[in-house]
Computed example of a mutant assay.
Amino acid sequence: MAVPKKRISISKKRIRKNLWKKKGYWAALKAFSLAKSLSTRNSKSFFYATNK
């Protein structure tokens, strides 16, 4: 027989949602930072071809 789950409180739901959003924010910030360093050629983890 199926038993209904307990209802999660609004505050717990909000906390989990904010953690999930924050994780996305940091991922986007990191990606933007990497793109910025690539465009200015200041990246330490990528090698650039020099045309000489």
Rank of each mutant, 00 (worst) to 15 (best):
M1G: 08
M1H: 03
A2T: 14
A2F: 15
V3K: 12
V3G: 01
V3E: 06
V3Q: 04
V3A: 07
P4M: 02
P4K: 03
P4S: 03
P4R: 03
P4E: 11
K5Y: 02
K6A: 05
K6P: 00
K6Y: 03
K6M: 00
K6C: 00
K6S: 01
R7K: 09
R7M: 02
R7Q: 09
R7Y: 01
R7H: 05
I8W: 00
S9D: 08
S9P: 06
I10P: 02
S11K: 11
S11F: 04
S11I: 06
K12R: 13
K12V: 06
K12L: 04
K12H: 06
K13Y: 10
K13F: 11
K13M: 11
R14I: 07
R14H: 08
I15K: 12
I15V: 13
R16S: 11
R16M: 11
R16A: 14
R16E: 12
R16K: 14
K17V: 04
K17M: 09
K17D: 13
N18E: 07
N18Q: 14
N18S: 09
L19Q: 13
W20P: 01
W20L: 12
K21F: 11
K21R: 13
K22Y: 12
K22P: 00
K23Q: 15
K23Y: 10
K23A: 15
K23L: 15
K23D: 15
G24F: 02
G24W: 07
G24V: 06
G24A: 07
Y25S: 07
W26M: 10
A27I: 09
A28I: 05
L29N: 02
L29V: 10
L29R: 03
K30F: 07
A31S: 11
A31P: 01
F32Q: 09
F32K: 06
F32A: 14
F32T: 08
F32P: 01
S33I: 14
S33H: 11
S33M: 14
S33V: 10
L34H: 09
L34W: 04
L34C: 09
L34S: 09
A35G: 14
A35C: 08
K36T: 14
K36G: 10
S37G: 01
S37K: 15
L38G: 08
L38R: 15
L38M: 15
S39W: 10
S39H: 09
S39I: 06
T40M: 01
T40Y: 03
T40K: 02
T40E: 04
R41L: 09
N42Y: 00
N42L: 00
S43C: 05
S43H: 12
S43E: 04
K44Y: 03
K44P: 04
K44C: 05
K44Q: 08
S45D: 08
S45H: 11
F46T: 13
F46K: 13
F46W: 13
F46L: 07
F46E: 05
F47H: 10
F47Q: 04
F47W: 03
Y48R: 10
Y48L: 06
Y48G: 04
A49S: 08
A49R: 11
A49F: 12
A49E: 11
A49V: 04
A49G: 02
T50H: 07
T50F: 05
N51D: 15
N51I: 13
N51A: 14
K52T: 01
K52Y: 05
K52L: 04
K52P: 12
K52R: 07
